[in-house]
């Protein structure tokens, strides 16, 4: 039976198409009767690069896991291309969605190339070892993530930024149109943050896929994302164009920090800066807690 299903999955036309990911009245709770997240309704369309922002504990990671079908909602539905994601066999789902967890996986004494090659698993239903095609896809993904030179290096010898690039390359090698990345820029320097998001941007740019990325840096979202989602206390506070969603007044309400906008000539906001005196207030608040 399983083999049949695998065969069917293999017979599937290879480039998994992406039309939309939609969440309908999604509710999730770790304990019954106490919803932790939702109700949330949300739609991700092709070519969109969503930045998911919000305070710690707002439910960003949970939302991302729900999007990938890793968690089961209490009620509501996650639909991929119009079909429930939980009805989809996991291996088929893996050809549609690739996920990068917040905590990077343990990689033992693997080389960068091995890590990327492992991501080809969803395509190897019947053959035990990697095909030449898998090897080529992994090589290509490493190059696209700007990690081509790291190919033979052991993961334990890589810096945080290099390791993150390799894991991003693994996501690309999985060749799924929808990328769901949980804080891929955490603990990276400014340059690496921009590089990582550029890779995602390039991937999404042709309109065949989409990306949902949890971020903490408002300015990165303003710079790279086409859409932003602001999550507060498990509910959507705002969603849409980053410049509107990440409005300084709203950010003040959500984070309790006052921001000054930096605007271009035409009035669009390109960045926000934490107000000098407000940073001071925050420090005091934290101390008095």
């Amino acid at each position: 039976m399983t083999t049949e299903r695998h065969a069917a999955a293999l017979a599937d036309p290879r480039p998994a198409g992406f039309a939309e990911l939609s969440l309908h009245d999604l509710v999730f709770g770790f304990a019954r009767n106490r919803p932790f997240l939702g109700p949330i309704s949300w739609r991700v369309g092709p070519g969109e690069f969503w930045g998911v922002l919000g305070p710690n504990g707002a439910g960003k990671s949970t939302l991302l896991k729900l999007c990938c079908g890793l968690l089961r909602p209490v009620s509501g539905e996650v639909a991929l291309n119009g079909r429930s994601i939980h009805a989809c066999p996991p291996r088929r789902r893996a050809r549609h969605i690739t996920y990068l967890p917040q905590r990077l996986p343990p990689t033992y004494e693997l080389t960068a190339f091995d890590v990327v090659l492992l991501a080809r698993y969803p395509f190897r239903a019947l053959n035990f070892f990697e095909s030449a095609e898998d090897v080529e896809a992994a090589r290509l993904a490493l190059d696209r993530a700007g990690a081509g030179t790291l190919r033979g290096r052991r993961m334990s010898t890589l810096s945080g930024g290099e390791a993150q690039r390799v894991h991003l390359a693994a996501c690309l090698a999985q060749d799924a149109p929808l990328l769901v990345l949980d804080e891929p820029t955490a603990s990276l320097d400014v340059r690496c943050q921009i590089d990582v998001l550029r890779v995602v941007q390039d991937r999404v740019a042709d309109g065949s896929g989409a990306a949902v990325v949890a971020l903490h840096d408002v300015n990165l979202a303003l710079r790279h994302c086409t859409h932003a989602l602001l999550l507060v206390g498990g509910r959507i506070a705002a969603s849409g164009v980053p410049g509107d969603v990440l409005d300084p007044e709203r950010l003040r309400r959500v984070f309790g920090v006052r921001f000054d906008p930096v605007r271009r000539g035409d009035g669009t906001m390109t960045a926000v800066v934490v107000q000098a005196d407000d940073a001071q207030t925050c420090a005091n608040t934290v101390q008095s807690d």
Binding site: R92, R95, I97, Y99, P101, P105, L118, P122
Partner: peptide
């Protein structure tokens, strides 16, 4: 064995890759 290789990377990643 191939699924166990994915499993070594952690439950979540393995699950997201179809294990």
């Amino acid at each position: 064995a191939p699924a166990l290789n994915q499993y070594r990377l952690g439950d979540e990643l393995a699950l997201s890759r179809g294990v």
